[in-house]
Nucleic acid binder design. Structure first.
Lengths: 225, 225
DNA sequence: GCGTATATGATAGGTTTACTATTATTTTTG
DNA sequence: CAAAAATAATAGTAAACCTATCATATACGC
């Protein structure tokens, strides 16, 4: 996979950064280091000072790239949506059957990513763990409306629209395609988190991926005319 | 409704407080004031100093009731689960048909609460807004496992189990009842938030409650044999 | 009603986080 | 090689988070 994507990069809304971290070696260390650290200690315990120490830089230098740790998390989340959209396009390319496209989309949105799909300086597996535990904090704030105006959530909406369109191909009369898609995306994050930490809130089945199975069943039954 | 519940109170896991806020007038002011303030300015901007000023007390006094603002949010969330369970029991009492019980449960879990169901010093409508925007922050932390061991999420699990049991009454072979119920609960919060702030991620239908309608349809189609 | 316990208020202070500013040094680039 | 740009080193401020101490008010037991 690595060689495949080696000459493309995922565009992130500049609103989330002061200086593009893709534009320098330090910027890449900030991204790679923050993914390591947020995954390990959690977003609340993560600070720019700790990050700077761990990548042998300084707090002030990190602040030249990101206004705040919240903006950095926003950056990571936007990057992830872009990454998901890219994989979505790739995985549904040249597939005719909308049912098959939807199946593949559901797998992408609900399954943990496999180890060999990593590229660049970004550890996508750790990033996905961060997305599961932290990404909702990007929008669950009082600043959400401003950020939305600035286009921060455009990538998320685009992804939701793409999957909604497949649902409408299957059943053009289905009334709630966006609700269904955003329910799966956020729901799959929740269920992964519950499986690890609050198993009483979910159903773990040994030897199979219950989460993907659950959503696949749910979606096809729900949209069926 | 008020007179109805006037002599009952909702038990909250003592792990969330240092001193029971129900046990004093100041405690009740802390709860009432924090609900007002968190709803208005959001959890991130909320501080004990601001709260103390607004209720004419002091920061140190608030700290006698709660270790941290995070524990206070935990308290509010646990209280809300207790409140939900109480309403659930009430609304499904003496109903024979499991389908009808499930319908009522879905309405309770997905619809905004109506104005006249408020009681005590707690403004349940504002509390529900807090739950929608802030409650996931209670578990999305690195301390979740410890808190879970301390029983913090017992009320949530109990509620999920109660609704799961109804689903199993309707279809005893359905494999993912807990996943389905926690998906609805968290999903309904998300969709309410999206409807207000990120409408591109949901489907708003004028003149009807699309969210409740969506989940009702989804659940009955999903669990049908 | 009096003394004692308890709760709250008033005040201070310490630590950490979040962020800005300034200057020196290194690296890049034309 | 000189100028420009990026980063490091350092310092400092304000707010948030939390603890401690002591005075005062209130409740409560006898």
């Amino acid at each position: 996979m690595k060689s495949f994507f080696s000459n493309i990069s995922i565009q992130v809304n500049p609103h989330s950064y002061l200086k593009n971290p893709e534009s320098s070696a330090l910027g890449k260390r900030i991204i790679a280091g923050s993914i390591e650290m947020i995954e390990e200690i959690g977003f609340e315990n993560f600070t720019f000072q700790k990050l700077a120490r761990s990548i042998n830089s300084t707090e002030a230098s990190v602040y030249r790239y990101f206004e705040s740790k919240h903006k950095l998390l926003q950056y990571l989340t936007i990057w992830y949506w872009g990454w998901l959209e890219y994989h979505f396009i790739f995985k549904t390319a040249n597939i005719d059957s909308p049912e098959e496209k939807l199946k593949r989309a559901i797998i992408l949105l609900t399954k943990p990513i496999d180890e060999d799909s990593s590229f660049f300086h970004i550890n996508e597996i750790k990033l996905q763990n961060i997305i599961i535990s932290e990404s909702s904090k990007v929008y669950l704030t009082k600043e959400v409306d401003q950020q939305n105006k600035a286009g921060v959530f455009a990538g998320y909406k685009k992804l939701v629209n793409r999957v909604s369109d497949i649902i409408l191909e299957i059943n053009p009369r289905y009334k709630y395609p966006h609700m269904l898609v955003s329910t799966i995306i956020e729901g799959a994050h929740n269920q992964r988190f519950f499986a690890d930490h609050l198993p009483g809130l979910t159903d773990i089945v040994k030897g199979e991926d219950a989460i993907t199975q659950f959503y696949k069943e749910m979606i096809f039954r729900t949209i069926h005319e």
